[in-house]
Design a protein around this nucleic acid. Structure first.
Length: 588
RNA sequence: UGGGGAGUCGCCAAGUUGGUUAAGGCUCAGGGUUUUGAUCCCUGCAUGCGAAGGUUCGAAUCCUUCCUCCUCAGCCA
C-alpha cells in the first residue's frame, strides 16, 4: 500500500548487522554449553546452548567504572537481551599487581545499579579470568608441545631492541630455537618458582618480521611473584591479556567478543590462538569472534583512567564518587539515573568512527527521563522577601500543588501561603529588561498555585541592593477557584512562605572542565578545570522536602532536577545536589 | 614514510550484492499550546556523502589516485 520504505529497526548498527547475519547463517545452531565455562571436552556432551548469543562485559578490577564503561555495559547486556542471549560479567584479573577486591565490589555494584544481573535460575554468569588459570596453563603447554611457543631468556631491554620498528622487521631471539623439551622443562620451572621474576618469559612463536607488532612473537606468560586477590599465592606466573582474553572468551563460549578500537591490531593474534587451540583439541568450533567499536569521548569530560586517578589523588575532587566526576559512582550521587544512561547509549549509537559526543546530549537524556520520573517541589535558591501588603497579618492558607503535571495520579500536596514569602531574587527587576515578564513595579504575575499579585515597589539598602519587594494580591484569583483565570498574566513565579519554609544546603554543580577538550594540544588538562564547578548555597525549601530519603530525585520547579545526596544527607536534613538545570530559553 | 582502522548536515548516525526526492536523533531557527520562559506539538534545516578523476542509462555505494584523522614498537589491559 504505502510507498514509504519499511522503517529501519531501531538502533541499527554494524554490530547488530554482524549478529543478525551470524544468526541467519545458523552459525551457533549446534554450539554446546555445559552450564559452566570449560574446554572442548567439558562442553562435548552438553546440550545445545539455549542462549542464542553470548556476550561479556570484561572489566579489569583496577579502577572505577565510568560513563565510557556504561556504553559497553549497555551494548553487551543490551545485545544479549535483544537477541535472546546471555551476557557474562567477567573480571579480567590477570595482573595481580594492579587489581583488588575493592574494585571488584564497586564494579559489581555499579553494573547492578545500571539494571543488569548475571544470575538466573540455572546459571550464575559472574566469572573471573583467574578461575581459568589452570586451563590457560594447559593451553600454554599445548602451544609449546606443538612448537607454537617458546621460552625466551632475553632481558626486557633486549626484547625491545629486537622487536624492530614500524618500518624494520624484528630479529629472532637467540632462544627461539630451543627444543620442545627444553621449553617445556623451562616453562614448568617457571611455574614452580625456580626462576626469578623477569628471568624468562613465554612467547608465542609466530613471525618476528610481521608488520603487525602483535604477531612478532608476543609475550604470553610472565613470572610475577605477586599475591592475587583470588588465587592467593598459588601462581607465580601469570598470563598476559593478549593470551588470556581469547581463552576466557572461548571457555565461556562467547560468540561476540566486543572491545574498543585499540584492540583491533590484536585480532589477528586472537584468531591465531583460536585456530591453534582448536587444532590441538582444547577448543571446539564455533570459536568467539572479536569485533571492535569506538570508545566514548564526551566533551568537557575526561575519561582516561590516568587523569581520573590524578583528579582524585591530587584532591581536585572529593573522591571517586564526587558528583562532578564521570564515574558511575559520581553519576549516581549527582542524580543521573540508569534510565538516563540507557537513553544516552541508545541515542549515541555505536560505530567505528572516532567521535566526540556533545555533553549536552548526555544532559538532555537525563532531563528527558527525569522530566517523566521526578516529582515537583518548590525551592527558592536565591531568596529575597516578598511582602503582600494587603494580606492579613498572621494568617495563612492552603494552596494545592500537583506533584507531577504529567501524572495526575500522583496527586497534590498542600503548601502554605502567608503574608511574607521568599521568592527568587532574579524574579524581580526594578528596571525590567526588554521582554522581562516577571515582577517589576506595576506588573502582575501569578504566585504559582496561589494568587495573582501586582508589584508595588521595593525597599533597598544603603548600597542600592533590593532587600524587600512589595505587592498586593487580587483576592478572587486564587488557583483552582472560578476566578483563577479572570486575570491573565504572562509571568508565573514560585515562592515559599517564610513562616513555613526551612533553610537547607544545596550544591549547584556545573561541568568540571571549562574547555570542550580538556588538555587539548600541549595544555595540562588540570589548567582547564572549571574553578566554579560547585557552589554550595543556603536556600529556602518547602517543608515537605525535609523528610525525603537519600537518593530521591525531584524537580525544583523552574530550576532543574535535584537529588538528596546519598552520602551527606542526614535524617530530617537532606542535602540536595543539582543534577541538571531545566532548559532555559530566556537565558539565551 | 610499515601494518591496522575511520572520514555521510553543527554533534551523533542509518544507508555500502549500484537503482527513483540521502533515514532518524540531538542541536539550531521559526510558530503553536502551557499556572514551570519547562514539558508537549508543528514547520524548516546535506543537488550533498573527505577530494579529484573514472566505469555505468544510473554511484554515498564499484575502480584509480590523493588528503585528513585515529591506532600499534609494556614482561599493562
Amino acid at each position: 500500500m504505502s510507498k514509504e520504505k519499511a522503517p529501519l529497526p531501531p538502533g541499527s548498527n554494524f554490530i547488530r548487522g554482524i549478529i543478525e547475519r551470524d544468526l541467519t547463517a545458523n552459525k551457533y545452531a549446534e554450539k554446546q554449553w555445559a552450564g559452566s565455562p570449560g574446554n572442548a571436552k567439558h562442553h562435548q556432551t552438553a546440550p545445545v546452548d539455549p542462549a542464542k548469543i553470548r556476550t561479556r562485559f570484561p572489566p579489569e578490577p583496577n579502577g572505577y567504572l565510568h560513563i565510557g564503561h556504561a556504553k559497553s555495559i549497555f551494548l553487551n547486556f543490551g545485545l544479549a537481551q535483544d537477541y535472546h542471549g546471555i551476557c557474562h560479567l567477567r573480571f579480567d584479573d590477570t595482573n595481580p599487581e594492579k587489581e583488588s577486591q575493592e574494585y571488584v565490589n564497586s564494579i559489581t555494584e555499579m553494573v547492578q545499579w545500571l539494571g543488569f544481573n548475571w544470575e538466573n535460575a540455572s546459571e550464575n554468569n559472574l566469572y573471573f579470568a583467574s578461575n581459568y588459570f589452570d586451563e590457560m596453563y594447559q593451553a600454554a603447554e599445548l602451544l609449546i608441545q606443538n612448537d607454537y611457543a617458546y621460552v625466551d631468556s632475553q632481558t626486557a631491554d633486549e626484547m625491545r631492541e629486537n622487536r624492530g620498528t614500524l618500518t624494520e622487521p624484528g630479529k629472532d631471539s637467540p632462544f627461539r630455537t630451543r627444543t620442545v623439551e627444553e621449553n617445556l622443562t623451562l616453562f614448568r620451572e617457571m611455574r614452580d618458582g625456580k626462576h626469578p621474576d623477569g628471568r624468562h618469559i613465554l612467547r608465542a612463536k609466530i613471525n618476528m618480521a610481521s608488520p603487525n607488532f602483535n604477531l612478532r612473537d608476543p609475550a604470553i606468560y610472565r613470572i610475577r611473584r605477586a599475591h592475587h586477590h583470588h588465587t592467593g599465592d598459588k601462581w607465580c606466573i601469570y598470563p598476559m591479556y593478549t593470551f588470556a582474553h581469547p581463552i576466557e572468551d572461548a571457555l565461556e563460549r562467547i560468540t561476540h567478543s566486543l572491545c574498543t578500537l585499540e584492540f583491533e591490531d590484536q585480532r589477528p593474534f586472537y584468531d591465531w590462538l583460536m585456530k591453534k587451540l582448536v587444532e590441538t583439541g582444547m577448543l571446539s568450533q564455533p570459536v568467539p569472534k572479536q569485533t571492535e567499536f569506538a570508545r566514548l569521548n564526551l566533551t568537557y569530560v575526561v575519561l582516561s583512567k590516568r587523569k581520573l586517578i590524578q583528579l582524585v589523588e591530587e584532591k581536585h575532587v572529593s573522591g571517586w564518587d564526587d558528583p562532578r566526576l564521570p564515574t558511575l559512582a559520581g553519576a549516581r550521587r549527582r542524580g543521573y539515573t540508569p534510565a538516563g544512561f540507557k537513553l544516552f547509549t541508545d541515542r549515541i549509537g555505536v560505530s567505528k568512527a572516532d567521535s566526540w559526543i556533545e555533553y549536552l546530549i548526555f544532559e538532555d537524556c537525563m532531563r528527558e527521563v527525569l522530566n517523566l520520573d521526578a516529582e515537583r517541589r518548590i525551592a527558592v535558591l536565591d531568596p529575597i522577601k516578598l511582602v503582600i501588603d494587603n494580606y492579613e497579618d498572621g494568617h495563612s492558607e492552603d494552596c494545592f500543588a500537583p506533584n507531577h503535571p504529567l501524572k495526575e495520579e500522583l496527586g497534590k500536596r498542600t503548601v502554605q501561603l502567608s503574608k511574607e514569602l521568599w521568592i527568587e531574587r532574579e524574579d524581580f527587576m526594578e528596571e525590567p529588561a526588554p521582554k522581562y515578564f516577571r515582577l517589576f513595579p506595576g506588573n502582575m504575575v501569578r504566585l504559582r498555585y496561589g494568587y495573582v499579585v501586582e508589584c508595588t515597589g521595593c525597599e533597598k539598602d544603603a548600597d542600592g541592593n533590593v532587600t524587600v519587594v512589595h505587592c498586593n494580591y487580587l483576592p478572587d484569583t486564587k488557583s483552582g477557584t472560578d476566578g483563577a483565570n479572570s486575570v491573565k498574566v504572562k509571568g508565573n513565579i514560585h515562592w515559599v512562605s517564610a513562616a513555613h519554609a526551612y533553610e537547607a544546603e544545596v550544591r549547584l554543580y556545573d561541568r568540571l572542565f571549562k574547555e570542550a577538550h580538556p588538555g587539548e594540544g600541549d595544555r595540562d588538562f588540570l589548567q582547564d578545570i572549571n574553578p566554579n564547578s560547585v557552589q554550595t548555597i543556603t536556600v529556602q525549601l518547602e517543608s515537605s522536602l525535609q523528610s525525603v530519603n537519600p537518593g530521591d530525585c525531584f524537580q525544583f520547579e523552574r530550576h532543574g532536577y535535584f537529588v538528596a545526596d546519598r552520602i551527606d544527607s542526614v535524617k530530617g536534613k537532606p542535602v540536595f545536589n543539582r543534577t541538571v538545570t531545566l532548559r532555559d530559553a530566556w537565558q539565551k
